[in-house]
């Protein structure tokens, strides 16, 4: 198998998002990879802002190529320890304490986390990022945004 397919296949499997069946699953896939890249795991995907927040065209194309091959194709690979830790951090975001304070489904939660982080990277400060999330994602309440910021404090540490 091609080496670039092995990389993305293993990553999607470990991030528990080896699924493109629904819009929610596709959002989770996009945002989890975005969050993982933000932890310094260089997978080479360029993200731009779109309707559901940061989005990578190339990742969609690779996922559509890789997922039909089946999860079992990506089982016998040893991932580096530091990468495993970062994958765990991304997966743990859905069960962290801050998450319990809000009533959002998983795709909305990851969309909020990724959107906040995207604007923070683009604009540099928490205040500006919050302002942009409020403008671009009015469906999220101030409590939701606060919870996301709290979750990301531990995440980025």
């Amino acid at each position: 198998m091609r080496s670039d397919l092995i990389t993305i296949g293993v990553i999607l499997k470990e991030l528990n998002c080896f699924n493109l069946d629904s819009l929610s699953n596709r959002i989770i896939l996009q945002k989890k990879v975005f969050l993982l890249q933000n932890l310094g795991v260089n997978l080479g995907y360029q993200y731009s802002w779109y309707v559901h927040g940061p989005y990578s065209t190339e990742l969609t194309a690779m996922a559509y190529e890789c997922i039909p091959l089946g999860e079992e194709q990506f089982t016998n690979y040893n991932i580096k320890e530091n990468i495993k830790e970062r994958i765990k951090k991304v997966n743990d975001l859905e069960k962290c304490e801050a998450r319990k304070k809000v009533k959002l489904d998983n795709s909305a939660w990851y969309e909020l986390l990724a959107s906040y982080l995207y604007w923070k990277k683009q604009l540099g400060t928490q205040d500006k990022a919050v302002e942009m999330v409020q403008i671009t994602k009015p469906q999220f309440s101030d409590t939701d945004i606060e919870a996301a910021i709290q979750a990301l404090v531990d995440f980025e540490r």
């Binding site: 198998m1 670039d4 092995i6 990389t7 995907y45 194309a61």
Partner: peptide, 29 residues
């Protein structure tokens, strides 16, 4: 991609380097 490999060891290549490079999808970054 090699410099930022996520794997402990380079996976055993089942196709030639010619083929792997020919079909490699470019990283935008």
């Amino acid at each position: 991609a090699k410099n930022n490999s996520i794997l402990e060891n380079e996976p055993f290549r089942t196709i030639s380097l010619l083929s792997d490079l020919s079909n490699h999808i470019k990283r935008k970054t």
